[in-house]
Simulated scan of single mutants.
Amino acid sequence: MGTEGGGVAGVMATRRGRRPAVGGVQLTFEVIAETLREQIHSGRLKPGDALPTQTALMRKFGASSLTVQKAMALLKQDGWAVSRPGKGAFVAHYDQADAHDLDHEEVTAPAAGTAARIETLELALAEAVQQIADLRGRVEALESGGGGRGR
């Protein structure tokens, strides 16, 4: 149960249960989530600290609001962050004694029960909305490129 892989083991543990990234490359929302996890693990962000705002993350990563929302949903699902309505997202509290070993499920997933299921559904919904937006963009591109057919 050791962590001989160092940082790589931590990255691999965060991908458990999710579809593999295309060609081994992380998707933008995964990069955002991993960056914030590293800041938490390194101590730059401590339990109870406010996470960067959606706008700040959009600017820093050149990402859409939906991409940032997916990253935040992933952090919440994995127990790294909690939301406080009207106040924002904050670093979740976890057992400091186990913070060095991020491969253990109890460290990365303190959220349980109904809240975890809701956050899982929110992530799935965000993915579906992103897919719809992507399809809408493709349809619009096709329509604008072939608008003069048959006339």
Rank of each mutant, 00 (worst) to 15 (best):
I118P: 04
G7Q: 11
T114N: 05
I118C: 06
G10M: 15
E140A: 11
W80C: 00
E106W: 15
H104Q: 09
R117I: 06
A89D: 10
R15G: 04
Q130R: 02
T3S: 10
H104T: 11
V8A: 12
T14C: 12
W80Y: 05
Q26H: 15
K60Q: 11
D95E: 10
Q130C: 01
A50W: 07
V31K: 09
A21P: 01
G17V: 00
S42Y: 07
V31R: 13
V31L: 02
G88F: 00
K87M: 11
G2H: 08
Q96M: 07
A128T: 01
V31P: 02
A71V: 04
K70G: 05
A99C: 10
D101W: 06
G62W: 01
T55N: 06
V8Q: 08
D78I: 00
H41I: 12
L142I: 09
G5P: 01
E30S: 01
E105F: 11
G148P: 13
G113S: 02
E119T: 12
L57C: 05
H100L: 06
E34D: 05
E4R: 15
E4F: 14
T35A: 01
I32M: 00
E38I: 08
M12I: 04
G148S: 14
G48E: 02
G6C: 01
P85A: 06
G88Y: 07
G145E: 15
T53L: 07
V8P: 01
Q130V: 03
V8F: 07
G48D: 08
A126W: 01
H104C: 15
E105L: 02
E119F: 04
D78A: 00
R19A: 09
R84P: 03
L27N: 15
A141I: 01
Q130L: 08
L75M: 07
A13H: 11
V31T: 07
L45Y: 01
S83H: 08
R59F: 10
E143M: 11
G86I: 03
Q96A: 13
F90A: 06
K76F: 04
G79F: 00
D98C: 10
V25P: 03
E34A: 08
P110K: 08
I118A: 13
V68E: 00
A116W: 02
S144I: 12
P47R: 06
K87S: 09
G88H: 04
Q69M: 05
